[in-house]
Design a protein around this nucleic acid. Structure first.
Length: 402
DNA sequence: CCTCCACAGGAATTTGCGGGGT
DNA sequence: ACCCCGCAAATTCCTGTGGAGG
């Protein structure tokens, strides 16, 4: 950090309650903006659970940051409390399928969240069990300790197999669960996801589906204003919130992004020792948000994926072209150099191709097929979506925790 | 228009890990 | 203590492919 002798800094002149700007912050009911309709729909789908009956399964669609996860967690929590008032044991598990993308991991995660080892005397190890064994423990937990359970599958489209959907939807009829009820909330970014599912799953899991539209600039503004208690009174320049809202609305109507940018703007003002948050902080904040998004994506990725991305970023940076296209082979060469520096055995080309495909899937890079010819063969070229400097900084940032 | 080559990517196989059962 | 299993990551092996050069 800096050479300041006071490591805690001055009493912050900017933030009064920063927690309000955490994305994970779950607001009280009247603070969810612009999603009244959606909450009402979800509520009616889960209503049967309040009396220990089977809730409807729901599918939610919408882009990131449109409040899908927020609303489903919020409504599930309310359901738990209301059910408890009725003497019903209810619980829910929130599974992020982006992190837990295999069937086993997803089942493990759900079981882990619903499990209370002190009470159930069942343990859910991180790994090592067969998929079937994880299922068995999950059913045991639900059957013995809950009357109703809700499993929220966020980003279901990232699941590699839809087998788990089949299992969950059939849990009751196949006799896995006898007394307890199970509801599933599926969340997807892709509107078309449902079309790819087979009829069985579709009919049982998609009893209801709702689309979450992006927030418009007005709603984003309201959302930001609803959280402006996070700041000390009067430190926000009047145009800041509208500006952030407009930026985010322009991109994807993503509330998470808007909140992040606002928070960063505050942090940047704080670091500069400024007394107010001004528009000039906002553009810096936008850049930082971009960098952090990448850092977060790659922090979940294995070391070599990061090397591959680094290799591409280096090539792009060195290129004089304004829109550089780097062939896979060149990326691989640079990647080998990086591995040498890092004292780590390079993966084979085949694997690196797969890693590049994964990076494209994460939306960090774009790929294109390029011309072939006699004696040349065909090849794939890679572009960075963001600025190479941002990527490089993001890669360096986290020295891998876990 | 046909050919031909270097690369793409599917499939099969191996390796490594974490944790059961006996 | 031992062996064994299932999974994911990595590797090996292989076939398919598009379009510039002939």
């Amino acid at each position: 950090m800096s050479s300041s002798p006071d490591y805690f800094g001055e009493d912050t002149a900017i933030f009064a309650n920063k927690e309000l700007l955490q994305v994970s912050h779950l607001p009280d009911g009247d603070q969810i903006i612009g999603r009244e309709e959606e909450l009402k729909n979800l509520g009616s789908a889960l209503r049967p659970a309040l009396n220990g009956n089977t809730p409807s399964n729901v599918f939610l669609y919408g882009k990131t940051g449109t409040g899908k996860s927020l609303c489903s967690k919020f409504i599930s929590r309310q359901m738990m409390q209301r059910a408890a008032d009725n003497g019903i044991r209810a619980g829910f598990a929130y599974v992020d399928c982006l992190q837990d993308s295999t069937e086993t991991q997803a089942v493990q995660s759900a079981g882990h969240q619903l499990n209370d080892p002190d009470q159930t005397e069942i343990t859910i190890p991180q790994s090592g069990l067969s998929t079937a064994a994880y299922y068995k423990r999950l059913w045991d937990i639900i059957e013995n300790h809950y009357d109703v359970a809700i499993i929220i599958l966020d980003e279901v489209d990232k699941l590699e197999s839809d087998h788990i959907l089949m299992q969950l939807s059939r849990a009751v009829e196949s006799g896995k669960l006898e007394d307890s009820k199970l509801g599933v909330i599926g969340i997807s970014n892709k509107i078309r996801y449902k079309d790819d599912l087979n009829e069985r799953i579709k009919s049982s899991l998609c009893e209801r589906d709702y689309v979450f539209p992006p927030y418009d600039a007005n709603q984003l503004r309201e959302i930001l204003y609803s959280r402006d208690d996070a700041f000390v009174d009067d430190v926000l320049d009047q145009p800041v919130i509208p500006h952030v809202a407009a930026l985010a609305a322009q991109e994807h109507g993503d509330a998470r992004q808007a909140i992040d940018i606002l928070r960063y703007a505050g942090e940047i003002a704080e670091e500069h020792g400024d007394e107010t948050v001004r528009e000039e902080h906002v553009s810096l904040a936008q850049e930082k948000e971009e960098q952090n998004r990448i850092a977060e994506l790659i922090s979940k990725a294995p070391t070599h994926t990061r090397y591959v991305l680094l290799a591409l970023a280096f090539r792009v940076q060195q290129s004089t072209d304004s829109a550089p296209e780097i062939p896979n082979k060149d990326v691989y060469e640079t990647y080998q150099h990086i591995c040498e520096q890092e004292n780590s055995d390079p993966l084979k080309q085949r694997r690196v191709r797969d890693l590049l495909n994964e990076l494209e899937f994460l939306g960090i890079i774009k790929q294109d097929r390029r011309g072939r010819g006699r004696g040349k063969g065909g090849y794939t070229v890679n572009h960075l979506v963001d600025e190479p400097e941002l990527v490089l900084r993001a890669c360096k940032e986290d020295p891998s925790p876990t």
